[in-house]
Design a protein around this nucleic acid. Structure first.
Length: 528
RNA sequence: GCGCCUGUAGCUCAAUGGAUAGAGCAUUGGCCUUCUAAGCCAACGGUUGAAGGUUCGAAUCCUUCCAGGCGUGCCA
């Protein structure tokens, strides 16, 4: 119909012409024109069956790219909290999906590990004594920072020590750097623990924080200054003026690269990081996952990098923003006292809730199985609740809905996988050995088969748009179709040919569910 | 003020300019001596915030308005 629009003809008439020219008798059972000009092609059972006999779920891309994915990127003056959840979960799912599709993914955890907050923290660690600093637990980070901030407000001498600590860091003064490194080790341990519990694929070597660009900023600014049309001094600060960005007074809004006191801003570090990603990492695409408040920041960053040729023109720069997490009251999701919800507390609560639900639903699991199921269900539920929604919108965090185990939730998909596993276990059959062509005699089998063949296109859509909810919708719909099939078609009790064909359908469904959930960073379970 | 985003069933969410706007939850009613009932089947539920416009066709694109959120020079 798009073609009809361009050709300025009647879509139904064009459909008829196309239909006359089509020769699809080897794969289609029937073709008919419907509605305003759709061609409905009903694939023949033999074609579908042939497609499913091959166990390849999807073909890798013919055009592999080097893709830098910048996500999670917490500010580590604070313990990780719910504000870091969406970037971490969505970015990880997209990174995994890109890899699944055959692209080379370079994860970049652009953590906040530099700047004024660290001056406060390190000065505070000095005050509490080296021993206490050495012994500090990961969970102390938040408390230390809160105390340090309070002291910064109330204690002038401490505030001055904090500022001189920042200077000492920037000058790479050895004792200051040693303290900073010790602190960063704690922070990395903290991140690694959270990532591990959440099944996030980020590794310590993916961490490349703001501090990593400290030494490249001065050369960057110097290079920019060689082009007199880019950097302009204004009110003591070095700025890039781009006429498309206006401030509240209608004047051009500058992108400040160097503050009037000589300090650098997030714009500056991001420019240096972008240069590194182009020149050193040789990225074809750079993806950023941050909340929607940073839209303007990234528009300016990308525009400036084009203006100053920070990256090659062919490199695709993409900011993929997301909305807020809201509580049931429609306000930002926080504790009752108004604090950020820490991720370790969120994970603990998810596992507690999942454990009690599992205990109620299936008391026959032993303790070890129960723990495994509880973890997979809890983490899967939290991640899927986020991933299954269009990331551009705010979304409402609701424990009961994400752990309800019915509807479009992770546990529903995991349950389907467990049911399939159970069939193979009961029949003592190897899931990987199914090759009998399914007969697809019933409509529910047909519907399942047709859907399985769409996996490829859905993965490509996620790769193109960085929206994992496309994949969630696909997997949910796949599961619904499988559940119908499961309820309506007996398998193990059937005669061998029908039984084995249906086992092939089960096997392909299980493999697709596992591959798809893997791409989302969610575990499957053989029993639950 | 200007810019960006959002507004879809009671609730949580889908819908690549296409067919009668779809799911789940909730509510109501069915289905377990047979592969896990954490399931399946069915009913109920809509002026897509409002009004115009473009189009063969609009939740989707354009204009105006309403409501909410965010951003808007030295935080990130």
């Amino acid at each position: 119909m798009g073609a009809a629009k361009r050709m300025r003809t009647n879509p139904r008439q064009l459909a008829a012409e196309v239909l006359n020219g089509l020769e699809l008798s080897d794969l289609a059972e029937s073709i008919e024109i419907a509605g305003p000009g759709f061609l409905n092609i009903r694939l023949s059972p033999s074609f579908l069956s042939d497609q499913l006999t091959d166990s390849t779920l999807l073909a890798e891309t013919k055009n592999p790219k080097r893709v830098v994915v910048d996500y999670s990127s917490p500010n580590l003056a604070k313990e990780m909290h719910v504000g870091h959840l969406r970037s971490t979960v969505i970015g990880d799912a997209v990174a995994r999906t890109l890899e699944l599709a055959g692209h080379t993914v370079i994860r970049q955890n652009h953590i906040g590990d530099w700047g004024t907050a660290f001056g406060r923290l390190l000065a505070f660690l000095d005050d509490v004594g080296d021993e206490a600093a050495q012994d500090a637990e990961l969970s102390d980070i938040e408390a230390l920072y809160v105390e340090a901030s309070q002291k910064f407000e109330s204690d002038l001498a401490f505030a001055n020590r904090s500022r001189s600590m920042v200077l000492a860091l920037q000058a790479h003064e050895p004792t200051a750097i040693a303290k900073w490194e010790h602190f960063m080790m704690l922070a990395q341990q903290h991140m690694s623990e959270i990532y591990s519990r959440l099944d996030i694929s980020l590794q310590p070597q993916d961490t490349r924080g703001e501090s990593a660009y400290n030494s490249t900023i001065a050369p960057l600014i110097s290079d920019l200054q060689k082009r007199d049309d880019v950097l302009v001094e204004s009110e003591g600060a070095l700025c890039i003026f781009m006429p498309e960005f206006k401030n509240k007074d209608g004047d051009i809004q500058p992108m400040i690269v160097q503050k009037s006191d000589g300090g650098y801003l997030y714009h500056t570090t991001d420019l240096a990081a972008l240069r590194y990603r182009g020149e050193t990492l040789h990225a074809d695409r750079v993806l950023y996952f941050t909340d929607a408040r940073q839209i303007l920041h990234f528009e300016m960053l990308f525009a400036a990098s084009r203006l100053a040729n920070i990256v090659e023109p062919g490199v695709m720069l993409e900011h993929h923003p997301f909305g807020k997490i809201l509580g049931n009251d429609g306000k930002p999701f926080r504790t009752r006292s108004g604090d950020n919800i820490l991720l370790r507390d969120l994970i603990d609560e998810a596992i507690d809730r999942a454990t009690s639900l599992i205990h109620e639903k299936n008391p026959n699991l032993d303790d070890e199985q129960q723990d495994e199921v509880a973890h997979a269900v809890a983490v899967g539920a939290v991640k899927y609740a986020d991933l299954s929604k269009n990331r551009l919108h705010d979304y409402t965090f609701n424990w009961d809905e994400m752990l309800a185990f019915d509807g479009n939730t992770a546990p529903y998909l995991q349950y389907a996988y467990a049911r399939i596993s159970s069939i193979f276990e009961k029949g003592n059959i190897d899931m990987g050995q199914c090759s009998e062509p399914p007969r697809l005699d019933t409509e529910v089998e047909r519907q399942l088969a047709v859907h399985l063949l769409r996996f490829q296109e859905v993965v490509e859509q996620v790769v193109a748009d960085a929206k994992p909810h496309y994949l969630c919708s696909f997997l949910y719909e796949l599961t619904v179709r499988f559940m119908r099939f499961y309820e309506h078609c007996p398998i193990l009790s059937e005669e061998p040919q029908i039984r084995d064909g249906r086992l092939t359908l089960c096997s392909r469904t299980a493999a697709t569910l596992k591959t798809g959930l893997d791409a989302l960073g969610i575990r499957v379970l053989t029993r639950m």
